[in-house]
Simulated assay, not measured.
Amino acid sequence: MSLQNDGRPSITSSHPVVLEIGIVTALLVGVYLWRELVSQVLTTVFGRPPSVGGVFVSGLVNGGVLLFGLIGFTVAYSRFREIDLGLRLPSRKVVPLVGLAVLTPIICVALTKLVGVVTGVPYNALTKTSIAADASVLPILLIAGLGLIIGVPMLVVICQVLIQASFEQVVSADTAIVLTTAVAGFVMVSNTGGLATVPELGKLIGAIAFTLSLGVAVYANERLENDWLPYLGFAPVVFVTAIIVFAGIAEVGTVAGGLFAVTQLAVLGIAAYTYDRTASLLAPALAYAALLLANRIVVFVFEAGMQSW
Rank of each mutant, 00 (worst) to 15 (best):
residue 88 R to F: 04
residue 291 L to V: 06
residue 232 L to E: 10
residue 162 L to T: 07
residue 110 A to I: 01
residue 222 E to P: 06
residue 157 V to P: 03
residue 280 S to R: 02
residue 196 A to E: 08
residue 61 V to E: 03
residue 187 V to D: 05
residue 256 A to R: 05
residue 63 G to L: 01
residue 12 T to R: 15
residue 247 A to K: 12
residue 58 S to M: 10
residue 189 V to M: 07
residue 189 V to Y: 07
residue 117 V to C: 05
residue 113 K to M: 13
residue 138 L to G: 08
residue 81 R to T: 12
residue 98 V to R: 06
residue 155 L to Q: 11
residue 309 W to I: 08
residue 59 G to H: 06
residue 18 V to Q: 10
residue 19 L to G: 00
residue 251 E to T: 11
residue 274 T to D: 11
residue 223 R to F: 13
residue 81 R to S: 04
residue 77 Y to Q: 00
residue 76 A to N: 02
residue 219 Y to N: 12
residue 121 V to R: 07
residue 38 V to H: 09
residue 301 V to S: 03
residue 193 G to A: 04
residue 9 P to T: 00
residue 15 H to S: 13
residue 267 V to P: 01
residue 73 F to D: 05
residue 26 A to G: 07
residue 302 F to H: 08
residue 158 I to G: 05
residue 284 P to V: 04
residue 207 A to S: 14
residue 228 W to E: 01
residue 58 S to I: 00
residue 158 I to K: 00
residue 301 V to W: 13
residue 227 D to A: 15
residue 308 S to L: 07
residue 140 I to W: 10
residue 88 R to Q: 10
residue 228 W to N: 04
residue 215 G to T: 02
residue 36 E to V: 14
residue 258 G to N: 09
residue 70 L to W: 09
residue 173 A to N: 05
residue 169 Q to P: 08
residue 98 V to Q: 01
residue 147 G to Y: 03
residue 249 I to L: 15
residue 94 V to R: 12
residue 271 A to W: 05
residue 82 E to W: 09
residue 101 A to E: 07
residue 222 E to L: 13
residue 201 L to W: 07
residue 246 F to N: 14
residue 309 W to S: 12
residue 110 A to E: 05
residue 104 T to V: 15
residue 281 L to Y: 05
residue 218 V to H: 10
residue 162 L to G: 09
residue 264 Q to H: 09
residue 242 A to R: 05
residue 97 L to Q: 00
residue 37 L to Q: 06
residue 11 I to N: 00
residue 259 L to V: 05
residue 166 S to L: 01
